[in-house]
Structure formats: C-alpha cells, structure tokens
Write a protein that binds this DNA or RNA. Structure first.
Lengths: 232, 232
DNA sequence: CGGCGTTTTGATGTATATCAATGCCAGTGG
DNA sequence: CCACTGGCATTGATATACATCAAAACGCCG
C-alpha cells in the first residue's frame, strides 16, 4: 500500500517551476464574504507553496479563484492531501501558532490573506464574526469527517465517484462537465490510492458509461445515479 | 476491501443489551472545565446510543468518564468510527441542526450534556467562551486531519501503532500499560481494517517485542521507539 | 518535428480481506 | 464446583483489490 523509499526523488512534490493555467472565477459564492473584506488579495502561480508544514501561522486564507491543496508528507515521501480548497473555501486555521500542513496552489490561484491577530481581535467584540469563524471551522471538520469515511471504508470506484460528485457540486458547475484543476497524482494522494488506480478507475467508470472523458482534465458526469449509488 | 451485503446481520452494531463494565475517572483533565459547569451529568450503559445519525442536534457533550465512539454507517453495513472520545473530549458539534454521525457509549460512560441554544446564547456575549468553543472545534479538526493521514497512507502496522500511542497519550496513563475500552471490531472500524487484521497485527507487534498483551484489553507499550518509528 | 511531463495500459506481486475454525473467558445454572 | 453457553479474539487457508514495476501513448510547448 505505501509508496516506499525514494519516492520523493521520482514524484515531484516540491513546488515546481510555475507554468500557469486555469480560469479565474473571481467571486466568492459563500458566506465568507465577511472575511473577504478583511485582507489583501495575493496571487500564486501553479504549484507555489503558500505556507509549509510547521511554518508559523500568521494568516488565514480565503480562496478567490483557482485551487489549493492542503497536504502532509510522511518521512518516506508518502503524501496525503487533506483537502482541496476551491473558491469560497477558507484554510489555514490552527489552534497552535504553527501550521500543521502545507498549502500549495494547484493552479494559478488568487486568495485573500487575512492576518490572524487582526481577525481574532475583531472577533472578540463581534459576535457575528466570531460565530462565522466557528461555523466555517465546523464546516471544515465535517468535510474532513466525510473524507474519513471515504478513506476508511470505500473502495477505489466509490472513492473516485465520490470525489467527482463532490468536486462537481462544489465547483458549482451548472452543466455536467467538470474541469479538474488537479493532476492524477493529486487525486491519488487525496483519495489514498495510486495514480495508476485512479486512472484505471476513471477509464472503468467511462466503460460503464457513468462518465465521459473528453480530455484528461475534463470529466462529464453521464449517469449521476450510478455515481450517486457508489456514494453510499 | 468492503464488507458486503449481509454484514449488518452478522455484526451487531446496533446498541446491544448493556452489561456495564469500565472504570470511572470522574474528573476532566483539559481546558473544557468552562463547559463542564454548564450542563447536567448523564450516565450511559455500555453500547448505549447517545444520539443517532440525523437526530436533531440539541446538545453538546463533554466526556467525564468512559469512552464514546462517533460513527457512521454505509448502506451495506460498513462502519467507520470517526473518533473515540475519552474523558475531557467534547463531541456533538454540528453546523446544521442535525447530527451527521451517531454517538454510542463504548463502555459505562458519564457525560455532561449541555444545551446548544444556551451555549450559543452565552457565547454571543462572552468572548472567552466563544474562543473556547472555536479552539475545541479546531482541536477536533486537527484530530480528524491526523486520522486522514493514517487512513490514507499508512499500512496496518503503522495504523495500529499510531492508535496505541495515541490512546496511551490521551488516556494520560503514567505507566506503559494501556487499558483499551473498545473491542477489536471498534478498533478495526476506527482504523479502516478488519478485526482479523487488527488481531494479527497486534500479535505481530507482540512478537516483534514492541508491545505485550497480558490480556486482550490490556496492552503494554514495551518499545516506544519502535512504535514511534511506525508513526512517521 | 522532437522532447518532456503526464496519463494510460499491461503484467505481476502483495497486503489485507474474506471465509472458516478454534480458542478463551466470564457469566449462568445445574 | 463444574459443565454449558455466548461473546470476543485468535489463528489458518485462500482470494482479491490495489500496489508496484515497466512500457507505451498522449498532449503541449518550444
């Protein structure tokens, strides 16, 4: 199951030379609008490090456009992506003063960067803000808990199907076509699989007629019922 | 990987006839003391349901003694335990008004049950309480995120070792002997393994000299370095 | 067109699941 | 006090989903 030894060498996890590509969206859809006004917009190229594991936690971030992966490395190079953050998502919460994961842009990405100290200062006499912070954190907890179920008890097909449905819902696409900002390796590390298994599973879902793959980063959800069935 | 079809029939997940057994501890160790004063103590027998999936969320709970499992069932009977809550832990947070998991006592258990409405009312003009709620939620998020790494990228030995070290640390035992309140099935459903694999892995760790098993519920951590090594 | 990073496909291996006994207590009743 | 029972836990034999290793194929950019 694990990826052994020299994995770091062959799998380029470290932020790569950027070569941007992805669409802007530029507007938040969710009740994080309160936050978005409290910080400055920052842009990142593809595969840039936003912060590293153990970095001191100075800011909280709201995604405006693009996508961010939150991840953790094991000593031997195995990587787990805890979450993908899409426009409207918030990341960077920490109880201690240090980040326990790293955050990297998946593609060209814009975020609002908010000083934690400022945020907490305001929250201490703004009950509404304070409640907003809490409920955003709860939302993230819920996402993590759902993902636990996926990683603990679902097989490859179910994992991929769940992933596709989730991304489709969150990217708020009105059509059935989803654009995946992340690579197969990212998906694999998110779903606790290997890149080969992700690829094979996608082609298998295509053969079953559940999806279509006009290109590797574009997925059409053909049979949502079939996919939903793989969700529980 | 998945447990198919008739699993529900053979694996008795539904709350069983109680037949209590486990030690009291009766005092909170953690900075939840603020909360403990805000609700009433409630006791549960072994394997009692504290709340079910989709139940409306009226309360938040603090564990005083015993242990609680937070879990979710898949349609076909596969179960994932999201967390074990030990004395001092808080559970029952929800953003919506419904519980998204069920909570069951693992053994005889005492909790403080606090009305959510009351808690939030107070929090809205008590910045300290409000911050406490938030940081408890963040702590739980962190726990879930750590667990994601375990489920996504660790093998059976690493999972079990991580589990033992974690439980030992959290149960605050001064010695190297840990008393496990939960069954092998519970451990398996927490670690995303089967009961057989958990059992085999434990005996394997014993053969390696990393642990000793004087009885099935008692584990002695003999070689913490070996165990820690399996942690990263 | 040529090269490089990524994805797909194929052949094989292995960790863990599954199926099936057997063993171990703790509690119960004769 | 001892046989009997019913939950758990352990152990063994076998199956399988996914990982691993290796090689094409694709797509993009220079």
């Amino acid at each position: 199951m694990p990826t052994p030894a020299a994995a770091i060498a062959t799998r380029a996890y470290a932020p790569l030379p950027p070569s941007g590509k992805w669409k802007d969206d530029a507007d938040t859809h969710r009740p994080v609008s309160i936050l978005s006004t409290l910080g400055a917009v920052v842009g990142y190229d593809r595969n840039a490090e936003i912060y590293g594991e153990d970095a001191s936690a100075e800011h909280v971030y709201v995604v405006l456009s693009g996508a961010v992966r939150i991840c953790k490395l094991l000593g031997d190079g195995r990587r787990q992506i805890e979450a993908f953050c899409l426009p409207g998502d918030v990341f960077g919460w920490e109880a201690s003063g240090r980040h326990r994961f790293s955050a990297e842009s998946v593609c060209d990405t814009k975020v609002v960067r908010i000083k934690r100290s400022m945020l907490f200062a305001r929250a201490s006499d703004d009950a509404e803000l304070s409640h907003a912070l809490w409920s955003l954190t709860v939302a993230e907890l819920h996402r993590a808990q759902n993902h636990l179920l996926v990683l603990g008890r679902k097989n490859a097909q179910e994992r991929v199907a769940t992933f596709l449905v989730d991304i489709a819902a969150r990217s708020g696409a009105s059509t059935d076509e989803v654009l995946l900002p992340m690579s197969r390796q990212d998906i694999a590390d998110y779903l606790g699989l290997t890149i080969e298994t992700v690829s094979r599973t996608l082609t298998h879902l295509e053969e079953r007629g559940a999806i279509a793959l006009p290109s590797s980063r574009r997925v059409v959800l053909r049979d949502r019922n079939a996919l939903r069935q793989l969700n529980s």
